[in-house]
């Protein structure tokens, strides 16, 4: 039976759902519960990764290192993992302290066409003797041959796995199938999939990725993640098992951990609401949703228009400042029409 490595970004992607207000206590409790389930990898931190706490994407309640230390104390079996985007995070300021705090895996991430900005970071992590993955975010924005080329670059820098992120929840099944088939034909390392639910494809796309050769799948408890949320972990795992894959996960213990998320974050559990669907259709990063809502209200414009404008402009994750510009432009046009 084919083994699937389950990687759990609940405490990282989920930070988007609570404006990065994750506490040490929450990290400790979830980590201690999920560690018993047999999940292989647990990601922790700010939604945009280490070093990302900022006005631009949201200020964290706690320092990165405080959260990582809480996780480390409570993970005995699972590996501790961080997301890291060069351009936000640097080796000196963020990666080195994270490794010192006991992180096992650094997922070095970039917009899906910019792999070469992760070169130094991937090499550094490998040189220090830790595991480094390459992550291509917003993968719906590039054609398959480009994605494969960027993945090959990351492999050449030393990445031990390549993760494809459907950060806007915009992927449809056919592309997932073609992409993973092509990646597996061209790479010698693990290939993984990280899905979002904006168009209801979270679990479905993950299964298609697995059937097409992916061996690492991301899933979040109760979808806890940006926008419409991630592939739902507690559905993904039993469905994989039904299909004949092994995950090594104890379902009851997994559900116990998931129940903690349900209780703790009651009012922030992601749903596929109207604006999240628009985010998926426009192909804009799921993490924009809360900012778009707030700013659209201030400028008295339709948040759906803001999303479609941003999508047309091809904005990438990290360009949250442009929300204000588009909201401003829309409001000026509205005033222009009225007079």
């Amino acid at each position: 039976m084919k083994k699937i490595i389950i990687s759990d970004p609940t405490l990282r992607d989920g930070s988007h759902a609570i404006n990065h207000q994750l506490t040490k206590e929450q990290v400790s409790k979830y980590c201690s519960a999920i560690d018993k389930s047999g999940v292989s990898i647990v990601e922790v931190g700010h939604g945009n990764g280490i070093g990302a706490s900022s006005i631009q994407v949201g200020l964290s309640k706690e320092f990165d290192i405080a959260l990582l230390e809480s996780a480390r104390e409570n993970l005995k079996e699972a590996k501790l993992c961080v997301h890291c985007i060069p351009g936000f995070a640097t080796i000196k300021k963020d990666i080195k302290p994270a490794l010192d705090a006991g992180v096992d895996i650094v997922r070095c991430a970039c917009h899906c066409t910019e792999a070469d900005i992760t070169r130094n970071h991937i090499s550094y992590v490998r040189e220090q003797g830790y595991q480094a993955y390459g992550v291509l975010m917003m993968a719906h924005m590039a054609p398959i041959d480009v994605l494969v080329g960027e993945a090959i670059k990351m492999e050449s820098y030393g990445a031990e796995a390549i993760i494809i992120m459907d950060s806007a929840g915009a992927f449809l099944p056919d592309k997932v199938q073609q992409l993973f088939t092509s990646l597996c034909d061209n790479l010698n390392v693990h290939v993984g999939y990280h899905g979002h639910n904006n168009l209801g494809m979270g679990v479905g796309n993950a299964i298609i990725a697995a059937n097409s050769g992916a061996t690492i799948l991301d899933g979040s408890a109760r979808c806890f993640g940006a926008g419409a949320g991630n592939t739902q972990l507690e559905i993904l795992v039993p469905v994989l098992e039904k299909l004949g894959y092994t995950t090594g996960i104890d379902l009851y213990k997994l559900l116990d951990a998931v129940d903690f998320i349900s209780e703790e974050f009651k009012s922030s559990i992601p749903t596929v609401n109207s604006l999240n669907i628009v985010s998926g259709l426009s192909g804009v990063f799921s993490g924009f949703t809360k900012h778009v809502l707030r700013i659209s209200k201030e400028y008295n414009v339709d948040p759906r228009d803001v999303f479609f404008r941003l999508g047309k402009r091809g904005v990438v994750a990290g360009q949250e400042d442009l929300i204000i510009e588009e909201a401003h432009n829309l409001s000026q046009e509205k005033i222009g029409k009225a007079t």
Partner: peptide, 23 residues
């Protein structure tokens, strides 16, 4: 202080922009 940089591959190419936030 904090500095952030984004590379955007959109075609046609985007103009350079910068935002300054001050608390």
């Amino acid at each position: 202080v904090k500095a952030i940089i984004n590379l955007n591959p959109a075609v046609p190419c985007i103009d350079m922009q910068a935002s300054v936030c001050v608390k």
